[in-house]
Structures are given as C-alpha cells and as structure tokens.
Amino acid sequence: MITSIESGYENWTLSFVKLLVDNNDPLSVEHYLRCLKSMNPEFVVPLAKIVFCSDERETLEKVTTPCTIIQTTNDLVVPEFVAHYMQKKIKGETTVEIVKADRHLPQLTAHLELVHVLGRVLGFEI
C-alpha cells in the first residue's frame, strides 16, 4: 500500500477509492476521490503508515467503557470478523451494529441507515 502511494499517488487514489466506497454510488465515489486528490501526497505516506502499520490490539483489553462497534456488511478494508474480535477483547460491555452497506464508508453511501443505528445507540429514534 505504501509503495503504491509513493510510486503513483494519482493511480493509488483511483484504486483505493474502489476499496472504500460502493462503486454503485458514483456521486460518493467522485466525492471521496476529490477528497483524496486534494490531499498533499507528501502527508499521505506518513498518515498511511500510521493507519496501516499500527497494531493496537493490546489496547482493546484496557477498554472498560461501554462501546458500540459499527460495521458494514461488505467492508473490503475491515472485514466483519474484526468487529467481533474487538467485541470479544474489549472488557466493557460492547455491541456490534451492522449497517447494510457496501464498503467502508457508510457515512457516504448508507447515511440514513447509519443515522438510524446511531439514533438507536444514543437512545433516540429518527
């Protein structure tokens, strides 16, 4: 991933957006692609190293606060088993809420369902 960013940022943005955003939602694809392209590539590599190379699994067992993990049904970046792994490791009461959405960014492609899940979690219905 890091090598792809370093060797060709423009090409990387095109392939990365396909992993994160449902390709059946062209407006969201275009929006996220514009966001990625507006980033300064020299800052993307250090950020990507933090995101993709960090391993904080040992931190999960230190979490005692009640948590809700929101997971999409078809996330190519973070598969559903990761949410359940986190749920088992976190010491506080933890639930997993599934949002029916393709890819990683339900706030773009399934925003109404995400708002309903957030409403349930926060104790108000929309």
Rank of each mutant, 00 (worst) to 15 (best):
E58W: 04
A83Y: 03
T73L: 09
G119C: 06
E80A: 13
T64N: 12
N24M: 01
K88V: 01
P79R: 15
F124K: 08
L19V: 08
A48V: 03
T73H: 10
A110D: 11
V45R: 05
Y9I: 07
D22Y: 04
W12C: 09
C67W: 01
S15A: 10
F124P: 00
D55N: 15
I98Q: 10
K88L: 05
V17A: 05
T59S: 13
W12R: 14
L36M: 14
K62V: 08
L27F: 05
T73I: 09
F43H: 13
G119Q: 08
L19P: 00
C67M: 14
T109C: 06
V82Y: 10
Q107P: 00
K62E: 15
V29T: 10
S7R: 14
K88P: 00
V44Q: 07
T109G: 07
V17S: 01
I2M: 03
V77E: 04
P66L: 07
E30M: 05
C67F: 02
A110L: 08
V45I: 14
V99F: 08
N74R: 13
D75G: 05
P66V: 11
Q107Y: 13
E97S: 15
T68Y: 12
T3M: 03
R57G: 00
E56T: 12
M86C: 12
V21S: 08
L27G: 04
H84P: 00
E93Y: 02
V44F: 04
E125L: 13
E61L: 09
V117C: 08
V51P: 01
E93R: 09
V63K: 03
I5R: 06
I2G: 02
V17E: 03
E30D: 12
E6N: 13
Y9R: 10
C67Q: 04
L14S: 12
S7D: 13
I126N: 07
E58Q: 11
C67I: 03
R34A: 11
E97V: 04
H111Y: 13
L19Q: 10
I69A: 06
H104A: 14
G8D: 15
F52P: 00
V44N: 07
V44H: 09
L108R: 11
F52H: 02
F16L: 02
L108D: 06
V96Y: 11
Y85T: 11
L19E: 11
E56L: 15
S15H: 02
K49L: 02
R34I: 03
E80G: 01
P66R: 03
V51K: 01
T94G: 06
M1D: 10
E58I: 12
